[in-house]
């Protein structure tokens, strides 16, 4: 019909358009790929000590790590939205010299080892970093604080939101925004009432990706924020530490992390479907 925006509603399969078959051999590598991803999960499951599982994951350290992870990941997702939505809009909707280069640089954390991200943050916001003195004057001590964890997570997760949303913005196109403007809506009104609602599914998936990435953040956090129970030791850091002394606890916590991540992604898909 008139609308060219992809609709998310799931159609009954008998209404799906007829499709051309895929070559049969393709199922073999596809299956191999799926097995490659899923088998390690089975591997974790096979090593879980179910007898004292509850005890392992409810220890004080584990609980604090999980809560801290959920708290910091939520905050960093929020930060990703606050910073990433404007970035995606500027990248998708405006043109200026050096834009291509800027886009590549902004997406750098996607390909950068997180430790490198942590080092970069350290030399920027650390005590002796680029802005360290300024922050010191303002009385802000970022290193070894929960804020540092959120910053590390935001740093590595931001590109996921930007990429996801920029793609959604480009797919949605500008036509609805043009119509809205011709109806007398100011740019802010167009942004609020047309642009954002139209890319909401993209924004949601971007936010979920950011949350998932934040939840799993390790390298940048341990480099930039340190590791202290209840303050900076998130679940991945706790898992890595537990591995030193108590492999069973590490496995149990890994499973918790996997379950939380699967839940988040599952919920998000559910949310998208009902949109």
């Amino acid at each position: 019909m008139g609308s060219t925006v992809p609709r998310i509603s799931r159609r009954p399969s008998h209404l799906d358009p007829p499709r051309v078959g895929v070559p049969r051999w393709i199922f073999l590598p596809a299956l191999a790929g799926a097995a490659f991803v899923l088998l390690p999960l089975v591997g974790i499951l096979s090593r879980v000590e179910w007898g004292n599982f509850a005890e392992l994951i409810t220890s004080d350290a584990s609980r604090q790590a999980l809560l801290l992870s959920l708290k910091t990941s939520s905050l960093s997702t929020l930060a990703c939205i606050v910073l990433g939505v404007p970035m995606a809009v500027v990248l998708a909707r405006t043109r200026f010299p050096g834009q291509g280069l800027l886009r590549s640089l902004v997406l750098l954390p996607l390909v950068l080892p997180p430790v490198v991200g942590g080092i970069a943050l350290l030399y920027t916001f650390g005590r002796r970093g680029l802005l360290g003195h300024t922050l010191d004057v303002l009385g802000l001590q970022i290193a070894f604080s929960t804020a540092a964890v959120v910053m590390a997570q935001t740093f590595v997760a931001l590109p996921f939101l930007v990429v996801s949303l920029e793609g959604a913005l480009r797919t949605a196109g500008r036509q609805y925004e043009v119509v809205a403007a011709s109806l007398g809506a100011r740019p802010t009104t167009v942004f609020r009432r047309v642009t954002i609602p139209l890319v909401l599914p993209g924004l949601l998936s971007g936010a979920v990706l950011s949350f998932a990435r934040s939840l799993g953040e390790f390298g940048a956090t341990i480099t930039f924020a340190g590791s202290l129970q209840g303050t900076t030791r998130t679940l991945p850091l706790e898992i890595y530490l537990q591995r030193e002394v108590n492999a069973d606890a590490a496995v149990a916590l890994s499973l918790v992390l996997v379950v939380v991540a699967v839940l988040v992604i599952g919920l998000a898909r559910q949310g998208r479907t009902s949109l």
Binding site: T4, V178, L183, G184
Partner: peptide, 15 residues
């Protein structure tokens, strides 16, 4: 948005 000129396109483009 400030021209008082409304546009009706080939596609209805209802939000």
């Amino acid at each position: 948005h400030d021209r008082q000129v409304a546009l009706l396109a080939q596609q209805p483009l209802l939000f």
